[in-house]
C-alpha cells in the first residue's frame, strides 16, 4: 500500500479529515481488503490505548491547588514595603562625597610629601660674589648629594 493512502487512513481514524476526504477513505476501506485491515488495526490500537491509559491522581484536587497559588499571589502583593533606612536621603550622598574628597586629599598630600624625596632638596639661590666665577649645580640621588661646582675658584 502506498504510504500516502496509509497516512490518509490513519488521519481518518484520528478524525483529522474533512467530510469529503473521509467519504473517500471510507469507500477505499470498503473496496480494498488491505486498506480495511489497516483501518481495523489502527482502530484496535486506538481503543486499547484509550481504555488502558493510566490515571494519575494529584495529592490534592485541582481547585484546591490553584486556590493555594491564588492565595499566595494575593498575600505577596499585600505584603508591606520594606521600611527604608531611617537616615535621610542626603546622608548617603554626603558620605560618598566625603569619601571621595578624603581619598583625593590623601593622594594629593602623599604626592606633595613624597616630592621632596623624589626631587630632592631645592637649591633656592646661588650667588657668586666674584664676577669671574660661575657655578653649576646638580643633585645626585645615587650619592644623596647636592653639588655646587664653582668655576675658577682656587683656594686650599
Amino acid at each position: 500500500m502506498k504510504n500516502d493512502l496509509a497516512l490518509k487512513i490513519q488521519a481518518c481514524v484520528d478524525n483529522e479529515l474533512n467530510a469529503s476526504e473521509a467519504r473517500e477513505v471510507a469507500c477505499l476501506v470498503e473496496s480494498d481488503a488491505e486498506a480495511r485491515a489497516l483501518h481495523d488495526e489502527l482502530i484496535a490500537i486506538r481503543d486499547l490505548t484509550v481504555a488502558n491509559e493510566p490515571e494519575y491522581k494529584l495529592p490534592e484536587s485541582g481547585e484546591f491547588y490553584w486556590s493555594k497559588i491564588k492565595r499566595d499571589i494575593n498575600s505577596s502583593s499585600a505584603r508591606p514595603v520594606r521600611e527604608s533606612s531611617k537616615a535621610p536621603f542626603w546622608s548617603a550622598i554626603w558620605t560618598r562625597m566625603v569619601a571621595t574628597c578624603g581619598v583625593a586629599v590623601g593622594i594629593a598630600l602623599l604626592i606633595s610629601v613624597n616630592r621632596q624625596g623624589i626631587v630632592g632638596p631645592q637649591v633656592h639661590e646661588i650667588e657668586s660674589a666674584l664676577d669671574e666665577m660661575s657655578t653649576i649645580t646638580f643633585h645626585s640621588d645615587s650619592a644623596n648629594m647636592t653639588v655646587v661646582w664653582v668655576q675658577n675658584a682656587d683656594f686650599n
Partner: peptide
C-alpha cells in the same frame, strides 16, 4: 672674600 653663597633647604 665671600666667593659663593648658596641658599639651601
Amino acid at each position: 672674600k665671600c666667593v659663593n653663597k648658596v641658599k639651601q633647604t
